[in-house]
């Protein structure tokens, strides 16, 4: 050819050189896919059924008088204090946060038991772990 566009420029005239600034973008990385599938696997044991004789259930629990539902908090032994997991996701704090209204649908017995055990004090004594491990991962 006598002359052609770009002849005297430094535009690459060889295919290999044309790839110098061309990453091989058809080689799409696929590594994370298999990890994604099992990253939240967990193995656990099923729930234990109530092992006690159901015929011993009190028929009218709410009417039973004189039950002392209180059990003392043993704060002397540190291993008794429960250490709860702090969730990974962000939790709001402050005045506008919503209460669970947890006592809304509890049975009367459950409500009485909560009251008898000074739930507020229990709440204040709850400790949260600093490190987070959301689930057991066997693979």
């Amino acid at each position: 050819m006598s002359s052609y566009p770009g002849e005297h420029s430094n535009i690459p005239k060889h295919m290999l050189e044309a790839l110098e600034n061309q990453p091989l973008n058809h080689l799409v990385p696929k590594d994370g896919l298999a990890t994604l599938i099992t990253s939240n696997i967990s193995l656990g044991l099923p729930h234990q059924q109530n092992p006690f004789d159901p015929s011993t259930a009190s028929s009218e629990i709410e009417k039973i008088e004189g039950i002392n539902l209180h059990f003392p908090e043993d704060t002397t032994n540190p291993s008794n204090q429960l250490l709860f997991r702090r969730p990974v996701r962000h939790l709001e704090s402050g005045g506008t946060s919503q209460s669970l209204q947890f006592d809304a649908n509890l049975s009367p017995l459950a409500k009485k038991c909560l009251l008898a055990n000074n739930s507020k004090a229990i709440q204040e004594n709850i400790k949260y772990s600093k490190d987070i491990k959301p689930s057991p991962i066997p693979i």
């Binding site: 109530n50 006690f52 004789d53 159901p54 011993t56 259930a57 009190s58 629990i61 039973i64 004189g66 039950i67 002392n68 539902l69 059990f71 017995l109």
Partner: peptide, 8 residues
Amino acid sequence: LSGLSHFD
């Protein structure tokens, strides 16, 4: 908790 059975 007397008055409540183990089941309860």
